[in-house]
């Protein structure tokens, strides 16, 4: 029972984070919301493991925590490069 309540609460948090990711307004807001969605997924998997009586899920939660971090950093690098190219283009036109 208590795990179900917690799982539902975490799902509400994830839904709110997703709405923020859709709303934006800047691309950094979106990445922030997606990062929060990912960390909540880790907690969700852990709670779900207890709810289903299968604590093996914790291994998946652990791997997910690391993949989420690497994914956010990778997306950030990508966005950064695009922003740099755009600003380089603007500079080129101005000169």
């Amino acid at each position: 029972m208590m795990f179900a309540v917690t799982a539902v609460a975490i799902m509400v948090i994830m839904a709110l984070a997703l709405i923020r990711a859709f709303m934006g307004p800047s691309v950094y807001d979106r990445i922030l919301a997606v990062n929060m969605f990912g960390t909540k997924t880790v907690l969700f998997i852990a709670v779900l493991g207890f709810f289903a009586g299968r604590p093996d899920f914790l291994d998946i939660a652990m791997v997910y925590a690391l993949i989420n971090f690497i994914g956010v950093i990778a997306v950030l690098k990508f966005v950064e490069r695009i922003a740099e190219e755009e600003s380089a283009d603007v500079d080129g036109k101005e000169n």
């Binding site: 800047s26 950094y28 604590p55 914790l58 925590a65 966005v79 922003a83």
Partner: peptide
């Protein structure tokens, strides 16, 4: 395992938010 999950979260979350804020700051937000 639970404590390891918590440690992973606590080690990675400041790095991710710092990278995010720094990128936003450098690109003039």
């Amino acid at each position: 395992k639970l404590i390891i999950v918590l440690l992973f979260l606590w080690y990675t979350s400041p790095v991710a938010s710092h990278a995010l804020v720094k990128a936003a700051h450098y690109h003039g937000l």
